[in-house]
Amino acid sequence: MICLENLTKYFPSRGGRQVIVDNLTAVFPTGASVALLGRNGAGKSTLLKLIAGTIRPTSGRVLSTGSISYPVGFQGSFHPDLTGVQNTRFVARLYGVDSDGLVDFVEEFAELGGHFRMPLRTYSAGMKSRLSFGVSMGIPFDTYLVDEVTSVGDGAFRHKSVQVFDKRNENAGAIVVTHSPPMVRRLCNMAAVLERGQLHFYEDLDAALEHHEYNLTLPPDRLRS
């Protein structure tokens, strides 16, 4: 279970401040795979980083009864001058897992070839996402945070990514940011729509997608709070 207690995060902006989450209290149930929906700029990726602890809230806190992955697709834990192998070993030490086993998993999964032993600064965005996804899926977390990474690569790679995700989801939960309705239905059993700093939870995926699609037709100042 992940519990957000009076969580607030804002950033300074020319207009005063940009509020991402506003005194938000919510619970992501244990073992649930929750699609996190919202228009571009709503703050979905920032909320994932708050849950992961990679950025600090302005106020409030995040509580969890289990381990949480870093947001897949976010390479903030990776050093650009280290190779893919070295970055993988660094993350293995950080989370206390076997580094050789994680390297073997990532090398087979990410399909980076010789680039796996080259500095991260030489990688394309897609290669970084493959590495990030592979490292995260190779570690047994209680909740996985996934930010659009299943859209990376060709059809065969996406299919493999979903298969690995399904395997992890047998014993773990997830919060998944995606703009793809088929992916929502394929990966998730709940959904939450983020708008104006608040979350609206749905057990009915179709109702959540309808809410999200309706929001996309409105100017931001007409979204409900």
Rank of each mutant, 00 (worst) to 15 (best):
96 G>E: 00
139 I>Q: 00
9 K>M: 11
36 L>P: 01
129 S>F: 00
113 G>L: 06
157 F>W: 09
45 S>Q: 11
178 T>P: 04
169 N>W: 02
138 G>Q: 00
112 L>K: 03
91 V>E: 00
173 G>I: 13
172 A>I: 06
111 E>K: 04
215 N>H: 12
26 A>Q: 14
48 L>W: 07
137 M>G: 01
152 V>W: 00
207 A>W: 08
93 R>V: 00
76 G>N: 11
64 S>V: 09
1 M>I: 13
175 I>G: 01
23 N>M: 14
158 R>W: 01
13 S>F: 06
177 V>K: 06
198 Q>N: 04
159 H>Y: 10
48 L>Y: 11
77 S>L: 13
115 H>N: 10
174 A>E: 06
166 D>R: 15
177 V>C: 06
7 L>M: 10
1 M>E: 08
179 H>T: 01
86 Q>W: 00
187 L>S: 10
120 L>T: 06
59 S>C: 04
87 N>K: 08
92 A>N: 07
63 L>Y: 04
22 D>S: 15
176 V>K: 10
176 V>S: 03
15 G>D: 08
180 S>E: 09
56 R>W: 11
189 N>R: 11
131 L>V: 06
177 V>Q: 11
106 V>C: 06
16 G>W: 08
163 Q>L: 04
122 T>S: 13
1 M>R: 15
34 V>R: 14
156 A>C: 02
38 G>N: 12
9 K>C: 02
122 T>P: 05
114 G>L: 04
124 S>P: 12
30 T>I: 08
202 Y>S: 06
91 V>G: 01
91 V>M: 03
166 D>V: 01
163 Q>N: 14
66 G>L: 07
180 S>M: 04
193 V>L: 14
63 L>K: 15
148 E>V: 12
154 D>Y: 11
169 N>E: 02
192 A>L: 03
95 Y>W: 11
38 G>P: 05
44 K>M: 10
72 V>Q: 05
100 D>A: 15
80 P>K: 03
49 K>P: 00
19 V>D: 10
72 V>T: 13
1 M>K: 14
170 E>H: 14
27 V>C: 15
219 P>W: 04
105 F>C: 02
35 A>M: 09
72 V>N: 03
47 L>H: 12
73 G>M: 05
85 V>G: 02
38 G>H: 12
191 A>H: 09
159 H>R: 08
70 Y>E: 00
22 D>Q: 07
176 V>M: 08
185 R>C: 02
98 D>C: 10
109 F>N: 07
166 D>G: 13
8 T>A: 14
27 V>L: 12
159 H>F: 06
201 F>Y: 15
104 D>G: 02
158 R>P: 07
167 K>C: 03
188 C>V: 12
185 R>K: 15
23 N>T: 15
72 V>Y: 00
168 R>P: 07
115 H>A: 15
207 A>G: 04
115 H>I: 12
160 K>D: 01
10 Y>E: 07
